[in-house]
Simulated assay, not measured.
Amino acid sequence: MRHRSVADLMTPTAVSVVPGTTFKEIVEDVVTHTLRLSPPALSVEVADGRVTLSGTVRRRSLVPVLLRLCNSVDGVVGVVDRLTYEDDDLSRK
């Protein structure tokens, strides 16, 4: 397995669709395997190519990464952000 940097994951071609796989399965795979977030912490809903993410992530800095990764899935037309975070690691600078 090839390891990717965060910069690699932010490109539009970071995630490709396997035939027969639903958008929800792909996005859940991004959430659980790429970012190693626990499935109970997040909810993924997909309708007409629009992904809605809700739930809580540990750090605020993960929110834009998660949104970009989900947007990079072929066929996703948009991502609705309903995410919250436990730790505002971006305001500590």
Rank of each mutant, 00 (worst) to 15 (best):
V77M: 14
L69M: 09
V57I: 05
D8G: 10
D88Q: 00
T11Y: 09
V57S: 07
L67G: 06
S61T: 05
R60L: 05
D8K: 03
S72N: 12
V17S: 07
M10P: 09
A7Y: 04
L62T: 10
A14Y: 02
V63N: 03
E28I: 09
S5F: 00
M1W: 03
P39Y: 10
V46P: 01
T52G: 03
R92N: 14
K24R: 15
V80Y: 05
A41M: 06
G75C: 04
A47D: 12
V18P: 06
D48F: 12
G49T: 12
H3T: 15
V18D: 05
F23H: 07
L83A: 02
M10T: 09
R59K: 15
P12D: 09
D87P: 03
R36P: 03
R60Q: 03
K24C: 12
V79Y: 00
R60D: 01
D48I: 08
E86G: 06
D8A: 09
R2G: 10
R58K: 11
D88P: 02
V6P: 00
L69V: 03
G78I: 08
T22D: 11
A47S: 15
T32R: 15
R2Y: 08
C70G: 02
P40T: 10
T34W: 10
S5D: 05
F23T: 11
R36I: 10
P19H: 08
E45V: 13
D88T: 08
R59N: 15
L69W: 08
G75N: 05
D88E: 03
R82V: 01
L83H: 02
L67S: 07
G49L: 09
E86S: 07
S43K: 08
L90T: 00
V51E: 08
D87V: 13
M10S: 06
S43C: 08
T22A: 06
D74G: 13
